[in-house]
Design a protein around this nucleic acid. Structure first.
Lengths: 175, 175
DNA sequence: AGGCTCTTGTTGAGAATTCAAGCAAGGGGC
DNA sequence: GCCCCTTGCTTGAATTCTCAACAAGAGCCT
């Protein structure tokens, strides 16, 4: 076997096939390719940002989502949804961004347990500075190798996967 | 905007468009969908393994690749290639697996700088125990939502991305 | 042999993420 | 009002990953 999801060493398949449905050759290849592509692409994007900007892609996503929101402000829970982060992770990350002066947090007036995160002008400037390089990296790693038709197919495929994993599609909040 | 790669707040596009090629609507949607799907799928697989097995997907991949290798043994550098890990990351991870008694390391006889990692019987048993649940998670998250045609398309798309990022395709070593 | 460089792998420190609590505020039901 | 339960977010510890520096063997050239 060659993938993280295939039967271990192909030896115990016989006894387990009754209860477990292993992957076919086609499925196997698709899964391996997907795993490799998503890992390599994410690490390459992370490396590009870390090198040029000094922060990981997860932080870029936070800045980008805030920049697109009304008043450059988003509630923590909404921000967590759109960047696909756990509350804890977002809290730590925004803490770091606040230390750098790129984001400000204040309590939500209408619901005092909530917090509103706002992108500062400095934060926006940093984002604007890094955006071209990041977009270029996305284009080179993901879009350039694909035909227009494949880009369209990929969107449909990924949306199907998303529907399966997250039926409410909270990531679409800011679509 | 709604994605980590789009122009910040859509305001400074005018001055930068001369040098930077932003994403089209189609590209944007594909990129957002890809990002969401790969992040959600990986976190769901990690969560499943962490819950059922107590270790992350990266460790599962190491065990799986070793189980498929001749003598359940692989050189560290080769193992790093097939699981797509940096030397450092692999060294730390194998160290942890060795502590648990699932892997053994010994120096390579033909090249004394090299190390050979071998999956133990205990390690193999752990892998065999966790494989069905993991395969089921992959199936449910990735394969089930897709048609057979989409699975085939996905393989081609991801291979195209891989060719762009890693032309030598070291991941194919154990294909 | 000597010396130079590249390869292989490890190590330790720092950063990011996860996990499990914990706390404060909202929203009923009584 | 009071109690209970849920929601929203934070905190600290443990885990994993990244980055830079390092050590040691191999390969090569003179």
């Amino acid at each position: 076997m060659s993938t993280a999801a295939s039967t271990p060493a192909g030896s115990l398949g016989g006894s387990l096939d009754a209860v477990t449905k292993w992957l076919t050759e086609d499925e196997q290849r698709a899964w391996v390719a997907w795993l490799g592509a998503s890992e390599l692409l994410m690490t390459s994007l992370d490396a590009q940002l870390q090198r040029d900007a000094g922060f990981p892609h997860a932080y870029y996503a936070i800045l980008a989502q805030l920049s697109a929101a009304p008043d450059r402000t988003l509630r923590m829970s909404d921000l967590a949804s759109v960047v696909n982060a756990s509350p804890s992770r977002l809290s730590h990350a925004v803490g770091k961004l606040e230390e750098r002066g790129w984001v400000i947090r204040r309590t939500c007036p209408s619901d005092r347990r909530g917090m509103l995160a706002t992108l500062t002008d400095v934060g926006f400037a940093v984002l604007a500075e890094q955006a071209p390089g990041h977009v270029a990296a996305v284009r080179k790693g993901l879009l350039d190798p694909l035909t227009d038709e494949q880009v369209a197919q990929l969107e449909q495929i990924c949306n199907a996967i998303l529907d399966g994993l997250d039926p409410s599609r909270s990531r679409r909040l800011l679509a």
